[in-house]
């Protein structure tokens, strides 16, 4: 069933790489890919949670803001180990230059009536990753997220 879904959405899953279409529905393919990497590399549950959270936030930003929800573009994910200590995920797109690591909107915190329902994505990425770096490409963007590789 999963393979059929990936064929339908043109997603590709190779070892350490995943290609997605720029559709929010394709984000459902990321978690099985991360789970497979976690099993292969003995990544602990809390780190898996952090990876899935940060990837969902970053990818949904690319789909909604980078590609403005146009569905016929691609997003390339790749995974690398950095020695024994760090796990690195790179996300490449072909959207106009878009620095997700900027300040963005800051949610208010004085009263629930003034709390913005959005704007939490990048603060969550900063909180749950070890580092986040944005790099403009000649045609697109590369966002690199790093996580500790400890298995809890």
């Amino acid at each position: 069933m999963q393979v059929l879904t990936m064929q339908q959405t043109h997603a590709k899953n190779e070892q350490g790489r995943l290609t997605l279409s720029s559709r929010l529905g394709d984000l459902a393919l990321v978690n099985p890919w991360v789970e497979a990497l976690a099993a292969e590399h003995a990544i602990g549950a809390d780190t898996v949670y952090a990876i899935e959270l940060c990837l969902e936030e970053a990818l949904s930003n690319i789909v909604r803001h980078g590609y403005k929800s146009a569905p016929d573009h691609t997003i390339e994910l790749s995974f690398h180990r950095k020695g024994d200590a760090m796990l690195q995920f790179a996300i490449e797109d072909c959207a106009p230059h878009f620095d997700q690591t900027g300040p963005g909107r800051q949610p208010a915190n004085e009263d629930i009536d003034y709390l913005l329902p959005g704007g939490h994505g990048m603060p969550l990425i900063r909180k749950f990753s070890s580092s986040v770096e944005w790099e403009p490409l000649p045609k697109g963007n590369r966002l690199t997220l790093t996580f500790p590789s400890r298995s809890e």
């Binding site: 949670y49 969902e56 936030e57 949904s60 629930i112 009536d113 709390l115 329902p117 969550l124």
Partner: peptide, 20 residues
């Protein structure tokens, strides 16, 4: 088992309505 920013929105928006 998992909560992301879109899930936060699903909690905050109705909570704001109740509070109002």
């Amino acid at each position: 088992s998992f909560l992301g920013s879109m899930g936060l929105r699903s909690l905050v928006v109705p909570s704001q309505a109740v509070r109002r």
